[in-house]
Simulated assay, not measured.
Amino acid sequence: MFSSHDGLCTIGELAEHAGVSVETVRFYSDRGLLPEASRSTGGHRRYAPDAAERLSLIRSLRGLDLPLPDVRRILDEQDAGGAPDVLEAAVTDRLNVLGTELAALRWREAALRLVHECPPTERPDILRLVGSLTTPPSTASLARFWRAWLPPRMPARSVTAFLERAIPHPPDDPRPGQVLAFARLHAFVTQPCGKSNPCQPRAHSAAGAREASALYTGLAHAYDLASAEIRKGAQPCSGEALDGFIDAYASTYGTHDTPAFRRMLVGQLAADPRIDRYWDLTAEVINAPDSHPEPTPGSAHDWLLKALNADLRATLATRCSDGQTY
Rank of each mutant, 00 (worst) to 15 (best):
L66R: 03
H186S: 03
T190D: 07
A89S: 14
A206S: 12
D322R: 14
T318S: 06
I246W: 06
L219T: 09
P84C: 00
L215N: 05
Y216R: 06
D272G: 01
T255I: 02
L64K: 01
P176M: 00
T255M: 04
T139R: 08
A80W: 07
L105P: 02
D85S: 06
A222V: 06
G194E: 09
R153K: 05
A260L: 14
A52W: 04
I230R: 05
A260E: 15
R277A: 13
I275G: 01
L98C: 06
P151R: 12
C118E: 05
H116V: 10
A241R: 15
A187L: 04
A310R: 02
A187K: 02
I58A: 08
D79A: 12
L34D: 02
Q78L: 01
F27I: 02
R313Q: 02
A181D: 13
T121W: 11
T296E: 08
H221A: 13
R210H: 02
L57W: 08
A90N: 05
R202P: 03
A214V: 11
H256Q: 15
T325M: 01
T92D: 12
F245Y: 09
E211T: 07
Y249Q: 04
L242R: 09
V285I: 08
A183E: 10
A51R: 05
E23I: 08
R62D: 07
D6H: 11
K306I: 00
R274L: 01
L87F: 01
L308N: 13
L68R: 00
T10I: 11
E284D: 15
D276A: 07
A52M: 08
C199S: 11
E16H: 14
M264P: 11
C193K: 09
D79Y: 07
A250C: 04
M264I: 07
F245T: 09
L112M: 03
P192C: 04
T282C: 15
R319Y: 06
L305A: 10
P273M: 10
L269W: 14
A248Y: 03
P171H: 11
G239C: 03
H186V: 00
S38V: 00
E88W: 15
R231Y: 06
R231H: 10
L105Y: 07
E16M: 13
G239Y: 08
F27Q: 05
I286K: 10
D85Q: 00
A310G: 03
L57C: 07
G233D: 12
W146R: 09
P67S: 10
T41R: 14
F162P: 00
A18Q: 15
T41K: 11
D276L: 08
P84E: 00
